[in-house]
């Protein structure tokens, strides 16, 4: 079993993976992003319906996370990449959370 054959095997598998075109829902994601944004823009006016500021903030954070996840998964292709690449941007988010939390707490 030489290195060459192993490499060819990998190359062949990669080529095969590229040939099978996964249907990527680019347009659906685009519509979803637009719809969420329309919702977001209206959140500041929710105050007049008695929805407290804290709930608005939570809503906006949730929509932002949803939009960010959509872009990262579909437009940045993380959904189609090997699992390990998904951890590359995910692991640092834990450290970022510690940093932001410590900064905000007085």
């Amino acid at each position: 079993m030489s290195m060459e054959t192993r490499r060819e095997g990998l190359g062949a598998r990669l080529a095969a993976a590229a040939a099978v075109t996964v249907k990527k829902p680019y347009f659906a994601v685009f519509l979803a992003l637009g719809a969420i944004t329309v919702f977001e823009i209206n959140v500041p006016s929710f105050g007049q319906y008695g929805i407290p500021k804290s709930a608005q903030v939570l809503m906006l954070m949730a929509t932002a996370v949803a939009k960010g996840a959509l872009v990262a998964l579909y437009y940045m292709h993380l959904k189609y990449e090997p699992l390990v690449l998904r951890y590359v941007p995910l692991v640092p988010l834990g450290l970022v959370a510690i940093l932001v939390l410590t900064l905000v707490v007085k």
Partner: peptide, 18 residues
């Protein structure tokens, strides 16, 4: 380019809407 978009996705509510 998409990453810069994601940054804006977070900045827009934080800076403009909250």
């Amino acid at each position: 380019w998409h990453f810069v978009d994601i940054v804006w996705i977070f900045l827009f509510p934080i800076v403009y809407l909250i």
